[in-house]
Design a protein around this nucleic acid. Structure first.
Lengths: 363, 363
DNA sequence: CAAATTCTGGCAAACGATTACAGCACCTTG
DNA sequence: CAAGGTGCTGTAATCGTTTGCCAGAATTTG
C-alpha cells in the first residue's frame, strides 16, 4: 500500500469539482452549495485525504506552529512547563517545536534563528542567561516572543517570571514560625548577580526576626551540598545554625545525607529547606521546598503569546512589554517541623502529636 | 523595522544573478563559479536572508522534522527521553515537534494523524496503551515510526523497550544479597496484564531464594503507598516482610513516610525498593530504585528511525521489525542496607563500616 | 419582461524554493 | 579553423493550497 498521499486535486476530481471548490468546501472559506459540500466531504473521506499543512503554510504565510526554547542542563524540572505550554497550544490548534540550548548564549540565538527559518508564528523562550536573552529576542525580529523563567529582560518582550520577593518571604516566614533564628544559605554564589539578589531578598525578609549567614560557595549540586555540610559539621556543634537554606533539592539531599550520617536530627536540631523544587511532579515529602508554578507559568506564557499575535495588526509604536510575576508554592516536607512553634520534645518527634498548636502570626 | 523577510529572489537580484544560481550557490547542489559564489553569499548576508523552510519542504517533499508523541499523565519522568531524542535529532539537523496524548487511545491516533498532516519525516511514539499502539502505527502509513517505552507491539514497527527480566533479576539479587527472604510487592495490580507479568518475573527471579507476596492493590501513587503501609503496620509486627518492593518512587515515598512515623527503622527492620524511578535527573539518595535508561532509549529510538529512513528505498516486503531491549540501572539509596550481608548491629547503622564484606554470589 | 442583485463555481496566479532542460561561452583537440 | 566537450547560468515548471477575479445562473426588483 505504497499509495502516494492524496492531494486536493484528487479529491476534487473524485467529487467532480474544481480544486477551488474543494478547498472552499473543506475549509468553509466561502459558502458552498449543500450537495457539493457533501460530495466533497465524502470524496475526501474515501480517499483518506489529509490537508498538506506545508503547502497551506506556504500559501497562508502562517505555520500554526510555535517554538519553545529551553536550556538543556535543567535536569527535567521544566517538563511541567513543557506540558502546560503544549496543552495551551493544542487548545488553539498550534503545534509545538521544541529546541534545547546548550548553556551558551550563542546556541540560544542559533535556536531562535532556526525557528525563524521554519517560520514559526511565535516563540516562547526560557533563556540560558541574561546575555542570551537580549540577543535572542532581537533575532526573533517581528514575530512575537515571550520569555519565561529566571533570566528575563523586561523592556523588550512580554515575560513570565517568579515573584522572588514573595518566594523568599514565604520561606523565611515558614522558618521563623518554627523558631529558627540563625539561618545558613548553602549553594548560592554571592558573586553571581542573580544569587546575590536572592541573598539580599532573604536578608530583607528576615530583617529583625532572624540572622542570615552565607556558607562558602559550593556548586548547587548534590556533591556541593555534601561538601558544605561536612565543612559545617567539622566546625563543631556550635557552628550549627537553626536552619539551612539550600539552593535546590539536590543540594538539600546532600546536606540531609551528611546530617543523617553524623547523627544530627532533622528537623529536631536543624531544619532544612530548598529554594527550588527540581522535580515538581514527584511527591516524596522529604524536604520542605519552594515549588515553582510551572504549569501556571506555561499557561500565562501561551496567553501572552496568543494575545501578542492578536494585536500584531495594531500600531507598532505603542506596544508595551508586559511582565507577569507568579508566587511559588511552599511544599512542607519532613525536613522542617510539622507545626509552627517551638521544637517538640525529641522523643515525641517520631510520632508527632495530633494536636495543632496555634500558628504564630508573623506576616 | 517591519521589513518583510527577504526571499531568495531578493538575494539573487542583489547579487545580479538568477534565483537558480542563487539557490545553487547557497545549497551547493551544483558547482558555481567562485566569484558568483562569493557574491551570492555576501548578498545573502547583507540582507539577512534565511531560507524559508516551508517552501523548501514543499518542493523537496521533506520537512526535516520528526514527531514525538508522549502520554501526558507521566509526571515528568520522560523529560530525559525528550532531551535525548531532541539531542539526537539536532545532530542530524532535524526539528522535533512534540505532542502529548491524553490517556486515551483515540487521542494517540489523533496525534499521529495530525503529525502526518504536517508531513513529518518520521515519528517516535511512547504509546499510552496497547490498543493505542496498534492503531497509531497504522495511522502513520508509509512514514517510519518507532515505539519506545512500555506498551509496544513488536511485529509492526521498530521499538525500544526495557529489559524487564534483567530489571527484576537485578532488584531481587540486590535484596537477596542483603538477607531479605520475605518480600512484599506494593502498588502492582495482579489483574492488569503488564503488572501481572512483572509479578511473575519477580517470582521467577526470587525462585528458591526468597518468597514474593503481593499486597492488596492500591493505586501507584503517594497515597496508595501510605494506605498500603498503614494496612500492613496495623496487621502487627509479624506481618512485616523483610523488604517492600514498590511500583514506583511515589509509592515508596508513601511507604517510607508511614514506616518512619511508626518508628519502624529503614533499612534496619525493613528495606524498601522502587521499580521505577520517577525523576531520573534528581539525585536524592532516599530510596533504592531502578532507573530506566531514558537517555539511551532516546538515542536508540533516533538511531532506529534514521536507519529506517535510509532504507525506505529498499524493497518493502522484506522489512523486519527490530526490537532493542535495554537494562535499567540499580541506584542504591538509603532505603536498603549499604553493603551486602546480614544486618549490622542497630547502633552501627548510622556510621557504617568502611570495610566491605564479600558480596554473596547469587546469580 | 428587463435590469439589478446575489450566489456559485472555475480559472489562474500567487506563496518561495529546487531542478530538469536548454543555451551559451570557453577550451581542447584533430 | 571546426567539431566536440565541458562548465556555468538562466528559463520555467513544479510542489499543494488558497483566493482575487470573472462568468454564468438564479433570484429579486422596477
Amino acid at each position: 500500500m505504497q499509495t502516494p498521499e492524496p492531494t486536493l486535486a484528487d479529491v476534487a476530481a473524485r467529487a467532480g469539482v474544481s480544486v477551488a471548490t474543494a478547498s472552499r468546501a473543506l475549509t468553509g472559506a466561502r459558502p458552498v452549495s449543500d450537495t457539493l459540500h457533501r460530495k466533497v466531504r465524502d470524496a475526501s473521506r474515501e480517499l483518506g485525504y489529509r490537508r498538506n499543512a506545508v503547502a497551506s503554510a506556504l500559501r497562508l504565510q502562517r505555520t500554526e506552529t510555535v517554538g519553545l526554547v529551553l536550556p538543556r542542563y535543567t535536569t527535567g524540572f521544566l517538563s511541567a512547563l513543557i506540558e502546560s505550554v503544549s496543552d495551551g497550544l493544542e487548545r488553539n490548534d498550534l503545534s509545538l517545536v521544541l529546541r534545547y540550548s546548550e548553556p551558551d548564549a550563542l546556541h540560544d540565538v542559533g535556536n531562535v534563528e532556526s525557528l525563524m527559518a521554519r517560520r514559526v508564528d511565535g516563540i516562547i523562550i526560557c533563556p540560558s542567561s541574561l546575555e542570551a536573552s537580549q540577543e535572542s529576542i532581537e533575532a526573533a525580529g517581528p514575530v512575537p516572543i515571550v520569555q519565561v523563567g529566571r533570566f528575563v529582560i523586561t523592556d523588550r518582550s512580554d515575560s513570565v517570571g517568579l515573584d522572588e520577593d514573595r518566594a523568599t518571604a514565604m520561606l523565611i516566614a515558614h522558618l521563623v514560625e518554627r523558631e529558627a533564628r540563625r539561618l545558613l544559605v548553602v549553594g548560592l554564589d554571592p558573586d553571581a548577580p542573580a544569587d546575590a539578589r536572592r541573598i539580599r531578598a532573604l536578608r530583607g525578609a528576615a530583617e529583625g526576626a532572624a540572622a542570615v549567614d552565607v556558607a562558602p560557595f559550593t556548586p548547587a549540586v548534590l556533591d556541593g551540598g555534601i561538601r558544605a555540610a561536612e565543612r559545617l559539621v567539622a566546625a563543631g556543634p556550635g557552628a550549627l545554625p537553626d536552619a539551612i537554606i539550600c539552593a535546590n533539592d539536590d543540594v538539600a539531599a546532600g546536606v540531609l545525607a551528611v546530617l543523617r550520617m553524623r547523627g544530627i536530627t532533622v528537623p529536631g536540631r536543624v531544619q532544612v529547606v530548598s529554594l527550588l523544587d527540581l522535580a515538581p511532579g514527584r511527591e516524596d515529602l522529604t524536604v520542605t521546598t519552594l515549588r515553582h508554578p510551572w504549569p501556571e507559568m506555561g499557561r500565562e506564557a501561551v496567553r501572552l503569546l496568543l494575545d501578542a499575535q492578536q494585536r500584531r495588526r495594531e500600531p507598532v509604536g505603542e506596544r508595551i512589554a508586559r511582565r507577569v510575576s507568579l508566587a511559588p508554592q511552599l511544599v512542607p516536607g519532613h525536613s522542617t517541623r510539622e507545626h509552627p512553634g517551638p521544637a517538640p520534645a525529641p522523643a515525641a518527634a517520631a510520632a508527632a502529636p495530633a494536636v495543632i498548636p496555634d500558628p504564630k502570626e508573623t506576616p
